[in-house]
Structures are given as structure tokens and as C-alpha cells.
């Protein structure tokens, strides 16, 4: 997007675009996490499981659910909005998918996400309710619907074979199928953002919606479609997660919203919209996933995890995520 050639910074002899800087730093931080984690395991166990491809692939497999959520969320954040309905959109999709079963399980799950996203889009675009509050309300509504649907218990229905295959299977005993799904979503998002008018419109609205509207973009429709895409991504993640754990359960999506926002922001996407690259989000997800796995290898308590988590986000953003000084 707004590639400012004259604003490139020289770093280690490399010329870095401002949009590339977060990506480069995040990659560097991923390396640092791997280094620290490996040092720890070498010291305590005398082995380096973190560097084994098998282990890394397994981590990426678990991370692909977060990755798919973050991909959808990034689109919404680029608009300058946010989607807080992710947790229960994801859970609802998982529950409906397992309840429907059969060949229609996966389309039903994604469809649920799509519908929730469209309602979000209608509220945000056409009713002009701030996305923060409308998606929050949708989250409560979906939670209410699902609690009423299941009676508050974990549903007894199981994930279909195809859902389980997509979530846990290894292609050629090596590449996790879930990773391939994440890859497909990633390619789609990159294509949307860089090769379609929809993508350009998303960036334009994120920068200044009024200008986008005046240049002839049907901004309401773009917002609607973007929220629908985000909902569908959350739905897909829910379907896969249900496949991974063979069933849906209450609150399965709660652990995905804040890490997804963190991943998008660590990846250099401006939380106010209009700026950011998908590659950054990808690296951000990998960073969060590896950080989590290193912390669990270190058997860090929840308290320590939370503190480290917060410190990492702040320090990363202090390095490259700082806003401009107000100068009038």
C-alpha cells in the first residue's frame, strides 16, 4: 500500500520499507524466542526439541486455528473497526457444524460465521453503530443462542470425519492438513488485499472513509463484505477446532480473540486501520504460538505467562508500533 520509498530506513545494510520494519523485527523476535527456548531445553534436558521440524510443524498445526481467526480479524482491523464477536462466532460455528453433521457440517459451520459477520456488517455499516459495541452485543447474542441450544452443556454431537481429517491429519505423514487450510486462507487474504478492488477499498476506508466514499466506493457494502469474511474465517476456525478436539464445547473460542488481536498488531497492522501487511500478521501468529509453546516448555505458571505476554506486546510495539507525536 502506501509504500513511501523516500522513507525507507537503513538497517544492517538492508533498505527497509516502513511497512516491512515490523515484519523484520517480528521475525527477529521469533528467532530470539527459539534461541532462548533452545538454550533452556539444552540446559535442562540436553536436547533441542524446539528445532525439530516435527515439533515446529505440530506447533504450527495448533497455531493454524489462531492464524485463520487472525486473518479474518486483520481485514476488519484494516477497515479501522474491530470484531469482538469472534469467540462465540467460532463456538457457534463449531456447535452447529457438529450438530448438523454429515456432508453439510463444514458449510453449515462456515455459513453460521458468514451470517453472524453479515449481521455485524449491517449494524456497523448501515446502522453506524460503533463496531466495538455492536460486535460485543452479537457476541452476547450468539452466546445466548448457543447456551439455549445446548442447555449449557457441551453438546454430545461429534465432529465429522472430514472435520477431524482437516484438523489433525498429516499429508504424507509430515505436513498437517490444518496448516494447508491456513495457507489457503492466507493466499486468499493476500489475493483479496493486493489484487482486488475490495482489498484496495478496505485500505482506502481504513485511511479515510469519507474520501473513499467520495471517490465512488460503496463503503457500506465493503464494510458488510469485510465483516462477513471475518465471520466466515472465525467459523472456519471453529469447524477446524471442533475437528481437532472431536467435539464442540462451551467457551472454546474465548482463548482466541485477544491473541488474534495481539498477533495482528504485533505484525505491524495499525489498530486504527488503513495500514498493514498480511505477512506481518502471519509472523505475528507464529510469534504468539512459539511464545506460548516456549512458556509451556518452561512450565511457566499462568501468572508468569500473563505478565510475559503483556511485556512482550508492549516492548514489541515500543520498538516499532509507536504513533506519531501530535504536532498540530
Amino acid at each position: 500500500m502506501s509504500r513511501r520509498v523516500n522513507a525507507t530506513t537503513a538497517l544492517w545494510g538492508l533498505r527497509l520499507d516502513p511497512d516491512d520494519k515490523p515484519v523484520a523485527f517480528a521475525v527477529g523476535f521469533v528467532m530470539l524466542i527459539l534461541l532462548i527456548g533452545t538454550g533452556y531445553t539444552l540446559y535442562t534436558q540436553g536436547s533441542a526439541p524446539l528445532l525439530q521440524p516435527q515439533y515446529l510443524l505440530q506447533q504450527l498445526q495448533v497455531g493454524s486455528f489462531l492464524g485463520i481467526v487472525a486473518a479474518g480479524l486483520m481485514l476488519v482491523i484494516l477497515l479501522g473497526h474491530i470484531d469482538l464477536s469472534v469467540p462465540w462466532t467460532l463456538t457457534a460455528a463449531a456447535m452447529i457444524a457438529t450438530a448438523v453433521g454429515g456432508p453439510w457440517a463444514i458449510p453449515a459451520g462456515i455459513g453460521v460465521g458468514l451470517v453472524v459477520g453479515m449481521v455485524n456488517g449491517l449494524g456497523v455499516a448501515y446502522l453506524r453503530v460503533p463496531s466495538m459495541i455492536f460486535t460485543l452485543g452479537m457476541n452476547a447474542v450468539m452466546r445466548g443462542l448457543m447456551v439455549a441450544h445446548t442447555g449449557g452443556f457441551a453438546p454430545q454431537t461429534a465432529a465429522t470425519d472430514l472435520m477431524q481429517y482437516l484438523a489433525v491429519a498429516r499429508i504424507g505423514d509430515m505436513i498437517p492438513a490444518a496448516l494447508l487450510v491456513w495457507l489457503a486462507v492466507s493466499v486468499a487474504v493476500v489475493a483479496i488485499l493486493t489484487r482486488t478492488t475490495l482489498g484496495r477499498s478496505i485500505y482506502a476506508i481504513g485511511n479515510r472513509e469519507r474520501a473513499a466514499y467520495l471517490s465512488g466506493i460503496d463503503t457500506n457494502r465493503v464494510i458488510l463484505v469485510t465483516f462477513a469474511l471475518s465471520g466466515a474465517a472465525a467459523g472456519l476456525a471453529g469447524v477446524l477446532l471442533a475437528g481437532y478436539s472431536t467435539k464442540a464445547y462451551q467457551g472454546m473460542g474465548d482463548a482466541y480473540l485477544l491473541p488474534a488481536i495481539a498477533a495482528v498488531v504485533i505484525g505491524g497492522t495499525n489498530i486504527l486501520g488503513g495500514r498493514g501487511r498480511y505477512l506481518g500478521t502471519l509472523v505475528g501468529v507464529i510469534l504468539i504460538v512459539l511464545l506460548n509453546s516456549v512458556l509451556s516448555i518452561m512450565q511457566m505458571l499462568e501468572a508468569g505467562r500473563q505478565i510475559i505476554y503483556g511485556c512482550v506486546i508492549i516492548s514489541m510495539l515500543l520498538v516499532y508500533g509507536r504513533g506519531a507525536r501530535v504536532t498540530g
Binding site: L258, A262, A303, Y309
Partner: peptide, 23 residues
């Protein structure tokens, strides 16, 4: 002083405060 957007800054500090509360 960090010039980080409030929503993200407080998202991060809330994790830290929760960690302290858990301790």
C-alpha cells in the same frame, strides 16, 4: 510516552495486572 494506541496498550497491561493478581 510509549505513544501506543490505548486499546492495545491496555490490552497488554491488563495481562500484566492479571498476572500480578494471580501471583
Amino acid at each position: 510516552y510509549g505513544r501506543i494506541q490505548p486499546i492495545i496498550a491496555t490490552l497488554a497491561t491488563s495481562a500484566i495486572y492479571m498476572g500480578l493478581a494471580l501471583i
